[in-house]
Amino acid sequence: MTEEKLILKEDLLRICDDVIKKGDTLLAPGKSEYVIVKDVSEIKLDPEALPTKISFKSYVFPKSEPVLYYKRSKNDVTLIDADVNGRKIVVLGAKPCDTGSIDIMKDLFNWDYRDEFFNLRAKHFIMIGMMCKTHDEYCFCTSVGCSPVSENGSDLFLIPLSDKEFALRIVTEKGREFIEPYFRFLCDADTKRTEEVLSAAKNPETAFDPDEVHEWLGRNFESPKWDGIGEVCLSCAQCAFACPVCHCFDIVDEDYSYSEGRRMKNWDGCQFGHFTLHASGHNPRDIQSKRYRQRINHKFRYYVDKFGKILCTGCGRCSRGCPVSIDIKEIVSNCKD
């Protein structure tokens, strides 16, 4: 069973200070994205803040990274491995709709090929999740198997009992190893109070049943419903890039000169028209409605079939940030007869 302790906010910040002093990376939700904390005074730990505009995905799956370097000589090509940065990253106060994201992506990055870049970074993540005490009209974590109190993906989980104290749950062995040197800061838990706080969680209303959506999608590949969305969507990748679990990437070679260059792995998005453009000129997803259909099917059908997980955490970032206000919750809720 998960062990529970009590920790004062000031002691939690002392631990954070120690993390920074040790030279490890401390990430915390900032104004619009997760930011690297340089001084603990920047830490807000606000359970009532909405999710940041983009998730911490770029720290485990960077928007752009070299995977190898190459050198050409007259008759030969030499390949040089890229260094994988496997520094320890401590994420403090991650929302439950973010904490599980690495586990969801892990399946893809270990499917037909073990992506050492992703894996090494993921291995060094320490996830300190925090109970969420808010939601807006775009949140739907409870419809995709997550909840404001979900410990899924967290190594340690914080439950704010007041402005000054937190219940701290030790969820994984990794979490225990991290917190052990700081045991002196932990006091005995007041589990009754914790339960009270947890039971007062504000769950967003369930918007749809993912099993029904899965079944509907299987029957409605050619539904005219997709057309309407295709007319409004402008084909940018805000939704994919803000998403904590979208993971598509493109591989490109960048030449510095005739003899040298590097191979890059860059974020890519399925709403871009050229995402599926073949060298022949043929494009199987030539119009926007087909691309949006792909987005929904990938999240709620294909990924479920392949890995048994929904490729969505219900954070609502894609909808909140959509330049043309397309709301994924509304669309998926309408995936029914």
Binding site: C236, A237, F272
Partner: peptide, 10 residues
Amino acid sequence: CIKCYACRAV
């Protein structure tokens, strides 16, 4: 910039 090209799209 994350090159989502939302600026271009709108």
